[in-house]
Simulated scan of single mutants.
Amino acid sequence: MTTTDDDTIQAAGCVLWRHSPARVSGELEICLVHRPKYDDWSHPKGKLKRGEEHLAAALREVEEESGFRCVPGTRLPSVLYYANGRRKEVSYWAAKAADGRFTPNREVDRIAWLSPDAARTRLTQPRDRDLVDALLSALHLARH
């Protein structure tokens, strides 16, 4: 686990997106992961390993948690909050899903591909909802 000089836990993740596989719609969908340990829905993310770069950690965490490899895009705002009394800073990127397939595991038991509005509603933490809007802005899509 990587921390900064001020003991802030460093983590990274992505707002993972794709165009709906439905032939007709092709609308934007965002992937959320469910972590049974916390019973929450969030964007895929996790702590950096020692010496790991933020983007490399984000891509690794997306694949570990969602089962999908992805193509990173625009850097999104970082999120700073306290977890168990310690500062945690999560760096995020927009990332388009490539190939992959989800397999439930100990850390993530299910994923959901949702419209931006449904993702905003499903996300457990209000701080994660702003990332949906940041993704739409980065992709030059208006919020519906």
Rank of each mutant, 00 (worst) to 15 (best):
Trp113Val: 13
Asp109Ser: 15
Glu53Asp: 15
Ala134Lys: 13
Thr103Tyr: 12
Gly13Glu: 08
Thr2Ala: 05
Tyr92Ile: 09
Glu27Cys: 07
Arg50Trp: 13
Arg87Pro: 10
Leu123Pro: 01
Ser25Trp: 04
Arg129Leu: 14
Asp6Arg: 07
Ala58Met: 02
Leu48Met: 06
Leu141Ser: 11
Pro21Glu: 13
Val90Gln: 09
Glu53Pro: 06
Asp5Tyr: 09
Leu131Pro: 07
Ala12Pro: 02
Leu114Met: 03
Glu64Cys: 05
Thr103Ser: 05
Ala22Met: 12
Leu16Tyr: 04
Thr74Leu: 01
Ser66Cys: 11
Asp39Ser: 13
Thr2Gln: 15
Arg23His: 10
Ala94Cys: 02
Ser91Val: 14
Asp99Cys: 07
His140Asp: 15
Glu107Gly: 08
Ala134Val: 05
Glu61Leu: 04
Gly73Val: 02
Asp117Val: 14
Asp39Gly: 14
Thr8Leu: 03
Thr74Gly: 01
Thr103Cys: 01
Arg69Cys: 06
Val108Met: 06
Leu48Val: 00
Pro72Met: 05
Arg122Gly: 02
Thr103Asn: 11
Pro44Asp: 10
Ala138Asp: 05
Asp109Ile: 05
Ile30Asp: 04
Ile30Leu: 15
Glu63Asp: 08
Ile111Ala: 03
Asp7Pro: 10
Gly51Ser: 06
Glu53Val: 03
Ala57Phe: 10
Ala112Ile: 08
Cys70Gln: 08
Glu89Leu: 14
Leu76Ala: 08
Trp17Asp: 13
Arg35Pro: 13
Thr74Arg: 13
His54Ile: 03
Ala56Gly: 09
Asp109Arg: 07
Pro116Lys: 10
Ala118His: 10
Leu141Thr: 05
Ala22Ile: 14
Ser115Pro: 10
Ser78Tyr: 02
Ser137Trp: 13
Met1Ala: 07
Arg18Met: 07
His140Gln: 09
Gly51Cys: 09
Lys96Arg: 14
Ile30Trp: 11
Ala56Ile: 05
Glu61Cys: 06
Glu29Val: 02
Glu53Lys: 13
Asp39Met: 12
Gly85Trp: 11
His34Ala: 04
Ala142His: 12
Asp128Ala: 13
Leu76Gln: 10
Glu63Arg: 10
Ser91Tyr: 12
Arg86Trp: 07
Leu131Gly: 00
Tyr92Asp: 00
Glu65Trp: 01
Thr4Leu: 10
Gly13Gln: 08
Glu63Thr: 09
Ala98Trp: 11
Ala12Gln: 01
Cys70Asn: 03
Lys45Trp: 09
His43Cys: 00
Pro44Trp: 07
Ala94Gln: 10
Glu65Gly: 00
Leu59Phe: 00
Cys14Thr: 12
Pro116Asn: 02
Ala11Cys: 07
Ile111Asp: 04
Asp128Val: 00
Glu61Arg: 08
Lys49Trp: 12
Asp39Glu: 15
Gln10Asn: 08
Ala119Arg: 06
